[in-house]
Amino acid sequence: MPRGDKSSYSPKQKRQAAHIEASEKKEGRSDAAAERIAWATVNKQDGGAKGRKATKKTAAKKTTKKTVRKSAR
């Protein structure tokens, strides 16, 4: 499959890309930029073609115990 081939995307992903592309064109982007942004957005949301799940890299949170002071009334 050549680079840039969109045949392995689902119909839903293609509709999403078309909607995003139209929105970007309405904002004044060029055709090429709108298409690039649309497919980058679909890839980021769905992890690319064939429904691959995107992996999220999250930093481990360092938990600390905080003492809770009760207000003296």
Rank of each mutant, 00 (worst) to 15 (best):
N43E: 06
A33T: 08
T58V: 15
A22E: 12
S23E: 09
E24D: 08
W39E: 09
R15Y: 06
A34G: 01
A17W: 01
A17K: 02
E24W: 02
K26S: 00
T41L: 01
E27G: 04
S7E: 04
Q16I: 06
H19Y: 08
P11L: 11
G4D: 01
A17S: 07
K44E: 06
R36W: 07
S10V: 10
D46M: 06
D46H: 15
R3F: 05
G51A: 07
K62A: 14
K65P: 04
K65F: 01
P2K: 07
G47I: 02
Y9S: 00
K26D: 07
R3E: 14
K70C: 00
K44D: 11
I20Q: 06
E35K: 10
Q45L: 08
D46T: 15
D46G: 14
G47N: 00
R3D: 12
Y9V: 05
K14T: 14
N43K: 06
K50P: 00
G47S: 02
K50E: 06
S71D: 04
K56C: 10
W39L: 05
R36C: 05
A32H: 11
D46W: 15
A60H: 09
R15E: 13
P2Q: 02
W39A: 04
A33H: 05
T67I: 14
D31H: 01
N43I: 03
Q13C: 07
S23W: 04
D46F: 13
R3K: 14
K14S: 12
T67F: 07
K6P: 07
T64G: 11
P2F: 00
K62I: 15
R36T: 13
S8E: 14
T58I: 14
A72C: 00
R36M: 05
E24Y: 05
E24P: 03
A18F: 03
S7Y: 03
A22L: 14
A32I: 06
K25I: 05
A54N: 15
M1D: 03
T67K: 13
K44Q: 11
T58C: 12
Q13Y: 08
T58D: 14
Q45W: 06
K57T: 15
K65G: 05
S10M: 09
A54F: 07
A32C: 07
T64R: 13
S8K: 09
A33R: 07
W39G: 03
A40W: 00
T55L: 12
K56A: 15
K66I: 10
H19K: 10
R69G: 07
A17G: 06
K62V: 15
I37N: 05
K53G: 08
T64M: 09
E35S: 10
A60V: 13
K25A: 00
K14V: 15
K70L: 02
E24V: 03
T64W: 12
V68M: 03
A17V: 11
K65T: 15
K62Y: 05
R52H: 14
G48E: 02
K61T: 15
T58M: 13
T41A: 08
D5T: 12
K14C: 10
K26T: 03
S8N: 11
T64F: 12
K65L: 10
S10C: 13
A59C: 07
A18P: 00
K12T: 10
K61I: 13
A22Y: 06
R3W: 09
K25E: 02
R3N: 12
S30T: 08
A17I: 08
D5N: 15
I20Y: 11
D5R: 11
S7N: 05
K26G: 04
E35W: 10
M1Y: 04
K25D: 01
A60G: 09
M1R: 01
